[in-house]
């Protein structure tokens, strides 16, 4: 955080400008400012052909092809649409751990993603979540909304537990325009994460899950005898720390990560693991590499 207390200072702006440049180079064939939805619709860009069936709009029949082939062939267009990007930032107590704290790391990533999206004329909506959906910034479009997004992110605070399932049920329970949901969290959620993702999937939203962990979480350094207290629920576990136990912890953490990642792969969602030990822009680029955020 900068000296004036804001996460989004001049240095941050320089770094997301770099990100923007990198994103442009990574996706040279894409049209800036335009995103094609998966939905085939009434756009002007031809996407494909398919046989005509009853009920299709006869305006889309390719009559030249009919003359050549003596068959009714329908032209299919990509539907041009604004891409709403829903950023869900975990504000539970566990996010305050790490150096830098996972929460700051998540906010910076959210800021960077917001900037990139707004620069691409996308709709941006940011929501805090913990045990339930907290304050949220309604969808905004336009480059001039970036500072509003920064102020929103800068004002966030940590505390309480986590329940992404409850949050998604509440958030996507209302009708939302289909878009891209980005979850920035450590995913230390005692409830069923996959059930939460199912809400997103059933509503046909795209999803990118970013798991943010500290190096200490990935490779704990603990004394021989430790009494571990969960900062969110206050539960205590006494452990005798051995190399074997630590290895088993790492295996369990990896299994937890793999469970989420496999789910995402199975349903075509994106997943990225971000460590607070590496600069946040590398994590953002990792998200870009998944060819989902910028199309």
């Amino acid at each position: 955080m900068s000296e004036d207390g804001t996460l989004f200072d001049a240095e941050f702006m320089e770094r997301i400008e770099y990100l923007k440049l990198m994103a442009t180079r990574m996706l040279p064939s894409r049209h800036r400012g335009e995103h094609r939805a998966r939905k085939r619709g009434t756009g002007i860009e031809l996407a494909d052909y398919r046989p005509y069936v009853d009920g299709d709009d006869t305006r889309d029949v390719d009559w030249k092809a009919f003359l050549r082939l003596d068959k009714l062939v329908l032209r299919v267009f990509d539907e041009e649409a604004d891409l709403p990007v829903y950023l869900f930032v975990d504000q539970s107590a566990s996010m305050r751990f790490g150096d830098p704290p996972k929460f700051d790391y998540a906010r910076k990533m959210a800021g960077a993603l917001s900037y990139i999206a707004l620069m691409n004329h996308d709709l941006i909506s940011i929501a805090w979540y913990g045990p339930r959906i907290g304050e949220w910034m309604p969808p905004k479009r336009g480059r001039n909304q970036i500072y509003r997004a920064f102020r929103f992110l800068d004002a966030g605070e940590t505390g309480g537990g986590t329940s992404l399932n409850q949050c998604f049920r509440a958030f996507f329970g209302s009708r939302r325009k289909r878009g891209l949901a980005v979850v920035l969290s450590d995913l230390m959620d005692p409830e069923d994460l996959l059930a939460a993702f199912d809400h997103c999937r059933y509503q046909k939203h795209d999803l990118v899950v970013v798991q943010i962990l500290t190096p200490d979480e990935q490779d704990p350094r603990l004394p021989d005898e430790a009494l571990l207290t969960d900062v969110e629920d206050g539960s205590e576990r006494r452990v005798r720390v051995t190399p074997r136990l630590l290895a088993r912890y790492r295996e369990a953490l990896e299994a937890h990560r793999r469970e989420v990642k496999d789910y995402c792969s199975r349903y075509g969602f994106g997943f990225a693991l971000a460590s607070t030990g590496v600069p946040f822009e590398e994590a953002v680029l990792d998200i870009f590499k998944q060819d989902r955020f910028i199309r």
Binding site: A93, S94, M95, F97, K102, D186, M188, D189, P190, T214, E217, L222, P223, E225, A226, L227, L228, T229, D230, V231, E232, D233, S235, E236, R237, R238, V239, Y249, A252, L253, H256
Partner: peptide, 13 residues
């Protein structure tokens, strides 16, 4: 045992 506060006991559990 030395008391340690951790972000979550989910994995430890």
């Amino acid at each position: 045992p030395q008391p340690i506060t951790v972000p979550s006991n989910l994995i430890w559990r």
